[in-house]
Design a protein around this nucleic acid. Structure first.
Lengths: 154, 154
DNA sequence: CGCAGATAGTTGCGCGTGCAATTATGATGG
DNA sequence: CCATCATAATTGCACGCGCAACTATCTGCG
């Protein structure tokens, strides 16, 4: 019942919180200082960039960008106002809409990467070897798992 | 100049963002659902709990709780309004103030842990062995480092 | 066909946050 | 002793977010 977690697990979780807060702040600060789009915008636009035809349904985009639907809706408002993407109606389903990356959006993405890339290199690349980074990615990936519900099933 | 990061490092960074967003959302949801204090409040109160005499200068607390000063100031307002801590003037320095944990605050901390602990166990403990958790913590810890300023030197 | 229920997206609302400016106090130098 | 600058904390402001409620459309069943 109590399910008390082991100290190692708590420490790992707290390290995750700290590392995230620290790195996010530094990177976002660097982006702001350089006058390029913020991290959230980058993430959202990158989702489009990686999608087939550089377009996504808004709900997909919300999932990919780790945002709530309403949050995404407003973000798309801002990105559209900035000319970095456009909304396009969906032909199959009149309720739905696509967000489509514009040339300006692609350019913003590239400009941002000129700052973002070096930041990742400075904050991650210089601190971890390639092998360590792979291990880190794997360990973090395990935390997402399919509900980890070995719980009972088996 | 370009400092392009290796794909492994980018993947690790993205995994960190994803894992943080996913776990934070789940845990905070569980806390809200259980009607206990949210994660931020817990973190802040825990800083006090771990401090000598269960009191901290507000600036220290801001650092420990990963918040800006203004953010912390408002958070302390809310926590004080909820009776979970009190502000006490600092004798050495009339500008400063301490935040001090109250008995109610301690109780809130314990109640929250009853939900938070099992969540960590479910989301981290069941997915990583103790050894893996230790490795994860170490890798994440390396990301904070002392500015990793080999920068140029070499 | 027509209505109930599900689904896509948007909007009202309140909250929490950071930045910049402000207030109050401490430290330093003429 | 007073002026100057640094520091601790708070406050004005605008922004971004999620939840819940809403509108519009699609789906299925009688």
């Amino acid at each position: 019942m109590a399910d008390r977690p082991a100290p190692e697990h708590v420490a790992a979780w707290r390290a995750l919180l700290t590392a995230h807060a620290d790195l996010t702040e530094r990177i976002d600060g660097a982006l702001r200082h350089a006058g390029v789009i913020p991290l959230r915008w980058y993430d959202a636009l990158l989702c489009l960039y990686e999608a087939p035809e550089r377009r996504l349904r808004l709900a997909e985009m919300a999932r990919a960008a780790l945002l709530s639907r309403s949050g995404l809706s407003r973000l798309v408002d801002r990105l559209e106002a900035a000319g970095l993407l456009t909304r396009e109606p969906c032909e199959d389903d009149a309720r739905g809409a696509y967000a489509v990356l514009t040339p300006d959006g692609l350019q913003a993405l590239r400009r941002c990467w000129k700052v973002y890339g070096p930041q990742i290199e400075a904050l991650v690349g210089r601190r971890l070897t390639a092998g360590e980074a792979r291990r880190l990615r794997k360990l973090l990936g395990r935390l997402l798992g399919p509900e980890a519900r070995g719980s009972r099933s088996s």
